[in-house]
């Protein structure tokens, strides 16, 4: 169902429908994460992917056209590069441990320590919160700074357009 949605989003030219499909895709992904017992990730995916991203895409659509310009030609070098990189990535997955393998390196490093000791060392029953906020506090601080920077960037790019425009109009009125 997710793959169908993604293919439909690629094929459709109506960008409004594509925005809606991407929201649906995120909601399905959130349901998938719930099935995989990753409730925190599902929560984020539902709120950000299905909620805010869709609203932002619609907001962008208000500024632009609702229909994609038809572009029939296939760009051959781009297709080759995409196929080559995709093939390399698939080749890379051959080396990865099997899904759910307890001997996988990711389960051998610090994950055991977090699961067994976080109750003693940090306290909260939700291990995800302990890892995010305490063990990996630096990373979360970095993420917060990234979000801060993103908002500052948007403000710097388009936040002041209207004010500049009115100032231009005013200075145009003055002889």
């Amino acid at each position: 169902m997710m793959a169908m949605g993604a293919m439909a989003a690629l094929a459709l030219r109506n960008l409004f429908a594509v925005a809606m499909l991407s929201g649906t895709y995120s909601l399905l992904a959130a349901a998938l994460y719930v099935v995989l017992d990753a409730v925190d990730v599902a929560f984020t995916e539902a709120a950000v992917g299905a909620g805010i991203s869709t609203v932002l895409l619609l907001g962008t659509l208000v500024l632009t056209d609702h229909h994609e310009k038809p572009n029939g030609r296939i760009h051959l070098p781009a297709l080759l590069i995409v196929l080559a990189v995709g093939g390399l990535l698939f080749y890379g997955t051959l080396d990865m441990p099997a899904f759910g393998d307890p001997q996988a390196p990711i389960h051998q490093h610090v994950a055991d320590h977090y699961i067994e000791e976080s109750r003693e060392e940090v306290g909260p029953p939700n291990i995800v919160t302990s890892v995010l906020a305490s063990y990996r506090g630096y990373d979360t601080l970095g993420e917060t700074t990234v979000i801060f920077t993103a908002a500052i960037g948007v403000l710097a790019l388009i936040g002041r357009v209207r004010r500049i425009r009115t100032r231009d109009a005013r200075s145009g009125d003055d002889p």
Partner: peptide
């Protein structure tokens, strides 16, 4: 902020 920046235009 991002939403308002987009929606104001």
């Amino acid at each position: 902020t991002i939403f308002f920046a987009f929606a104001s235009q």
